[in-house]
Design a binder for these strands. Structure first.
Length: 868
RNA sequence: GCCGGGAUGGCGGAAUUGGUAGACGCAGCGGAUUCAAAAUCCGCCGCUGGUAACAGUGUGGGGGUUCGAGUCCCCCUCCCGGCACCA
């Protein structure tokens, strides 16, 4: 065995072997239990970045670990191939989005293969392939027939110069990113999926997911936002609004209804539009409200503005006249597009009321009875539940009693009553873009919106187009949109909108099971593999993608395609890959960013950073923060170069060692060196052992103290590492344990026959336990350690209980909770003897200084605390 | 703004159920080897005081519960993710 570790030779040979033998092809006829391990598929942006490397390494480690534990593992890969970046690249480089995408896929596939992932490549899918999206179109038509998909108008960001709809991220400070024009809201017809019909099930289903991170479930619960409240109808005031009607609002605080001093409506609300007919100032204000982005974050952070409409409504219980205001913080698309304002007990209403001098009426006091009038500045306690005051017949009632009383009275008056509401809104899936899945609808003047019949699917997206960035290319292609109505046969127009790309990623995990089915979306294989046993991806997908995929799973189930209720049994959300930033100020707020590789950081004699200079000119650069690897900050590291230099195993090892998977991972070139050094040391130690002759692993015989200690450490490590891989999913601590084992092996210095057998045992176990993380080097080492076993088919080690037993233990001795000494005792020592020995310690005597201990706490096997 | 998360040596992190804070690695310092350097090997390494033994102090800040708190509770600061058309 070569004493020098040569990763390139080892890795290319083994990868070729995996490829040639289709080593990771997964079948359904296998006696072993199935394990479906899935990493979120990538958008084919062009090159693999470190975030991908991290994601796919974590997935591969879990796949290979389960393979070693006797599972039939499926780990597939594919491409989330539709999306905005392809259109942007098309505009910039005058290439067709399709060609750009296919070239990127080819390059990224080869990069993934060089990482040594145990992927079943025969199942590869790309969502832009008609064989894939035809089933998405088919499901669309089925859901359309069922009424799950319906049409309504919704607001979008409209760029009046480019005459195009903009994504939220394309709106920067209220302007279009390319044209610079002020963006307007525009209402257009769109198709919506009735996700709200599944809101209760999506909420309840979270309780069936014990292996999802609590934080993700919490975020989804809050997003769905089930609330219990009241619908309240404010009758129109006939003197100002000259017809009958009611203004509907929803509130979770009916107990504060008597404190409502005005109502606020969205700019698009019918009452606002009515008032604006004879009020040009109001009309101007409404159009100002419409000149902003549709993003909720923008709406919520903009300065609160409003205007009185001059209209009034009547309080449903007191009959008081309440003014109707238009407010920019009220959203038309959410709830009723109107809110009742109780400034004394709601922070937003309070701010608005103070700003416009509207009355604030305190109607709730704290349960402890102390009277607190809601006066500026706002206190969070004003919003707490309490006791009603200034509320007539409701005075003295607590939250629940007041809630019920008000709800009952409203119901009796037919002006509202109890209602459950969700924050979740229906999912608008229409996109006015080219590079997406065509919506399979035909518009016929006589028959209306007609779904494309199944036998005419797919509606193929033409791939040879020129994208200009102004308007949708499909809407300019008569050969695409001209068609005949499937019902009446008369000339009709094909829908030219495409679907949100979240639709493709909502069911791809299921298609991997039935990847080659040409006569159905899914077949029996889907129920074989689903649910996914382990799903891995970025925390940024905690809400939207994961909620949509859960929703689709239920849709497919109700369509009879699947039997399970949830798509992903276990979820691991991985953190970002971050790196230091360096820059020079160029004046007027601009910065010149330098890649960490171009910079030398100088340190003091203790290793603390002093300053940084550019390698090429030796002049200083500013040390910026540690941020997510991004082109804009020039702090990225190219995985391809990393692998070319150190090999895939080093890249994988570093990614897993530097941080636990769910935390952000800070890039460090020196850390990569350290990971590589460990592999070199391991290889060298193994080679030296092998070159002196492999021996059978230790079975049983008399061990000296050092060898006993080594086996004690080894078998504890086996137990710990197994737990780290399976329950904890912290691979950094598993790696640390194998490093400790190698350190102990190096220190052993015993070449006797028994020692060599224990070393053999340790090396074999370490090789298997590291194999999920660094599979190439471990395969090569295993073949050297066990020349008898041709294939790499070891089994996961089991900790030996005998080796882990110990006769003597160490207890920590504390006085008043401070560490003052330690005590080595036989495991069987009784409490009284332990107390006596602890008290006899000189250090203990010194600190109790002759006082009588008040209390002595003994934590078995851990410590003794003497309290004086 | 709202929802979710995070903060531990010079750095990444460990401490799994409230019980030895700093495992493992990086950086740094000292030594061995070398003509020399790289590589490698050995040792030291939270902070303050002390030659040392040792003592004090220390997990973003403030308060609390406990014999004992990085871990539990309350308040605050800063950073990160999401907010429905980026994926």
């Amino acid at each position: 065995m070569d004493i020098h570790y040569n990763p390139q030779t080892i890795e290319t040979a083994i990868q070729q072997e995996w490829d040639a033998t289709s080593a990771f092809k997964a079948g359904e006829t296998d006696a072993r239990p199935k394990y479906y391990c899935l990493s979120m598929f990538p958008y084919p942006s062009g090159k693999l970045h470190m975030g991908h490397v991290r994601n796919y390494t974590i997935g591969d480690v879990l796949s290979r670990f389960h393979r070693l534990r006797g599972y039939n593992v499926l780990q597939p890969m594919g491409w989330d191939a539709f999306g905005l970046p392809a259109e942007n690249a098309a505009i910039k480089h005058s290439v067709a989005p399709a060609n750009w995408t296919y070239a990127n896929i080819a390059h990224m596939r080869s990069q993934l293969k060089r990482l040594g992932l145990a992927i079943d490549w025969s199942r590869e899918i790309a969502t832009c392939a008609p064989e894939y999206y035809r089933w998405e179109q088919w499901l669309f038509t089925e859901l359309f027939k069922k009424g799950i998909i319906y049409k309504k108008t919704a607001s979008v960001n409209w760029d009046p110069v480019d005459c195009t709809v903009l994504a939220n991220e394309q709106v920067i400070d209220g302007r279009g990113w390319r044209s610079g024009a002020l963006v307007e809201k525009r209402d257009i017809p769109m198709y919506f999926m009735r996700i709200t019909a599944y809101a209760d099930e999506l909420l309840g289903g979270l309780d069936q997911l014990p292996h999802w991170p609590e934080q993700v479930k919490t975020m989804q619960r809050n997003w769905i936002g089930k609330s219990f409240g009241c619908e309240v109808h404010f009758p129109y005031d006939r003197d100002s609004i000259e017809h009958d009607g009611v203004l509907k609002v929803y509130t979770t605080r009916p107990d504060t209804l008597m404190g409502a001093t005005y109502v606020a409506v969205a700019a698009e609300h019918p009452l606002a539009l009515l008032a604006a007919e004879n009020n040009s100032a109001l009309a101007d204000f409404i159009s100002e409200c419409r000149r902003s982005s549709v993003a909720e974050a923008d709406v919520a952070t903009q300065a609160k503005k409003g205007m009185n409409t001059g209209l009034f409504v009547r309080h449903p219980l007191s009959d008081a006249r309440l003014p109707v205001w238009v407010a920019n913080y009220v959203l038309m698309g959410y709830g009723e597009g109107a809110v009742m304002a109780v400034p004394a007990h709601d922070a937003r209403d309070f701010e608005f009321a103070v700003q416009y001098g509207l009355p604030i009426k305190t109607v709730i006091i704290p349960t402890d009875g102390a009277y607190t009038e809601a006066v500026a500045p706002w206190q969070d306690s004003y919003a707490e539940h309490g006791i009603c005051i200034n509320s007539g017949k409701y005075d003295g009632l607590g939250f629940d009693a007041a809630f019920n009383a008000v709800a009952g009275d409203l119901a009796e008056l037919d002006l509202g009553g109890k209602r459950t509401q969700f924050r979740l809104r229906d999912w608008g899936i229409s996109r006015q873009r080219y590079w997406g899945c065509p919506i399979p609808i035909i518009h016929c003047d006589d028959c209306g919106d007609v779904p494309v019949p199944a036998e005419r699917l797919p509606v193929v997206l033409p791939e040879d187009v020129v994208v200009t960035g102004a308007g949708s290319p499909l809407a300019a292609m008569p050969e695409f949109y001209r068609c005949d109505c499937p019902v009446c046969g008369r000339p009709a127009r094909r829908e030219t909108d495409t679907m949100d790309t979240f639709v493709e990623s909502s069911w791809y995990y299921a298609r991997y099971a039935s990847f080659d089915s040409s006569d159905a979306m899914l077949d029996a294989r889907a129920d074989h593999w689903l649910p996914v046993d382990q799903y891995i991806g970025g925390i940024e997908h905690a809400i939207l993608h994961l909620l949509y995929a859960r929703f689709f799973h239920k849709l497919m189930r109700d369509q009879g395609l699947l039997k399970s209720d949830e798509p992903f049994a276990r979820l691991l959300t991985q953190g970002m890959v971050v790196a230091p930033t360096f820059y020079r100020d160029l004046g007027d707020g601009k910065k010149d960013w330098f890649n960490p590789a171009e910079v030398d950081v100088r340190t003091d004699e203790r290793g603390r950073p002093l300053d940084a200079v550019l390698k090429t000119d030796g002049l200083p650069v500013t040390i910026g923060g540690t941020e997510k690897m991004a082109k804009s900050k020039n702090n990225g590291v190219d995985p391809e170069q990393l692998i070319a230099r150190y090999g895939a195993d080093t890249a994988r090892l570093f990614m897993l060692f530097a941080a636990p998977p769910d935390q952000s991972l800070e890039w460090s070139d020196a850390g990569v060196e350290g990971a590589h050094r460990f592999l070199r040391r391991l290889w060298k130690f193994c080679a030296e052992h092998v070159n002196n002759g492999v021996v059978p692993a230790y079975r049983n015989s008399e061990l000296n103290a050092d060898l006993k200690a080594l086996r004690f450490q080894l078998h504890h490590a086996i137990a710990k590492i197994t737990d780290d891989y399976s329950r904890r999913q912290t691979f950094n601590t598993a790696i640390a344990s194998t490093m400790e084992l190698l350190n102990s092996l190096t220190r052993l210095n015993d070449t006797g026959a028994i020692a060599r057998a224990v070393i053999q045992e340790t090396l074999e176990h370490v090789t298997v336990m590291l194999a999920p993380i660094v599979p190439h080097i471990c395969t090569a080492m295993w073949r050297e350690l066990r020349p008898d076993s041709a294939a790499f088919a070891p089994t996961w080690p089991v900790a030996d209980a005998d080796a882990m037993s110990q006769d003597e233990i160490t207890l920590m001795i504390q006085v008043n909770g401070k560490l003052r000494g330690e005590l080595n005792i036989a495991k069987t020592t009784g409490a009284a003897a332990i107390q006596q020995m602890a008290l006899n310690q000189p250090a203990v005597q010194k600190f109790i200084a002759g006082q009588t201990p008040k209390k002595i706490i003994i934590v078995p096997g851990r410590l003794v605390n003497i309290v004086v």
